[in-house]
Design a binder for these strands. Structure first.
Lengths: 156, 156
DNA sequence: GGTTTTTAAGAATAATATTTTGTTTGTTTA
DNA sequence: TAAACAAACAAAATATTATTCTTAAAAACC
């Protein structure tokens, strides 16, 4: 994609973020073009990497994942390859769905899904606290999430 | 959905989380059914709320959102309707894409996308710190994100 | 002002989604 | 055990949508 994105491209991105399964026909009507150039634009956005992927959003609670938490983790940097060791361990833990390397008091912020408190305790006892390079960690239980939006470009 | 989900349903959820735009034909081949019952299962999962929605995932950096942060916020509960006041204000801020009510030191954890440090300063100065019920806040800049996966049911 | 490039529309074709119908499978009940 | 019922599935027909191709219009460039 040589030039920059225009207003129509942003509108496509916005609509596809909101509804990733909208048909090309509907999409074309929403943006005021015919299906052919609409599809061409979507393909270009995909090819150029503006659209990375498409995903279904599932209801975690209905699937028995009643507990969502963020865990802040401080590492012990007295050992070698501290960060890589940590990342290797964390990647093994399927309950961890996000892992962010952050600035501030903590070194990493993890997002975790488990079914209940017992499962959370097991996660902490058997997995998190067993990672050798973890110095301290602190749990933030998510009581409710009041906003969770797709990222919409700010312009336009 | 009267009964519980079976192995095939979980497989559908997994596949749709990974690729929200997979065609019903491909999906049916992956799970080993014909298109008709496959579609029927997907519709049931949607109707029953197991699948909440579909979304395109965009590349924030390509769209000029170079800075991602988490902000921990402590509220001042000496006023009335502290939480509702906070939520009303936060909902106005388009840079805030997630807002979690959490336990621990902080009361809320926000996820924020902005274009650069200048924009971040403006956000802090003009918006976050102007919310009357905010007592303290602490920024975690995301340096990198090494894991970001859809939630896959743990069973099977 | 003419030329090139880009973008879009329309029409034809291909692929897929969706519906309908009938069959199988499994379960319940007498 | 057999009969009746319900649920799930497959196959085929139809409807809808995606995709490609060709042509026209618009914009950018020289």
């Amino acid at each position: 994609m040589a030039a920059e994105l225009d207003k129509i491209d942003f509108k496509i991105l916005k609509l596809l973020q909101e509804n990733g399964r909208i048909t090309n026909l509907l999409l074309s009507q929403e943006i005021g073009l015919s299906p052919a150039p609409t599809l061409e634009r979507v393909r270009k956005l995909e090819m150029a990497g503006y659209i990375k992927s498409y995903h279904a959003l599932v209801d975690e609670e209905k699937l028995g994942l009643g507990i969502k938490t963020f865990i802040q983790i401080q590492l012990d940097f007295h050992k070698n390859n501290t960060i890589q060791t940590f990342l290797d361990e964390v990647n093994q833990i399927k309950e961890v769905t996000e892992c962010h390397h952050v600035t501030g008091q903590a070194d990493f912020l993890l997002k975790v899904y488990v079914s209940d408190i017992k499962a959370y305790e097991r996660l902490i006892m058997d997995k998190i606290s067993k990672i050798s390079v973890v110095k301290t960690f602190q749990t933030m239980m998510i009581m409710s999430t009041t906003k969770k939006e797709p990222i919409v470009p700010l312009e336009y």
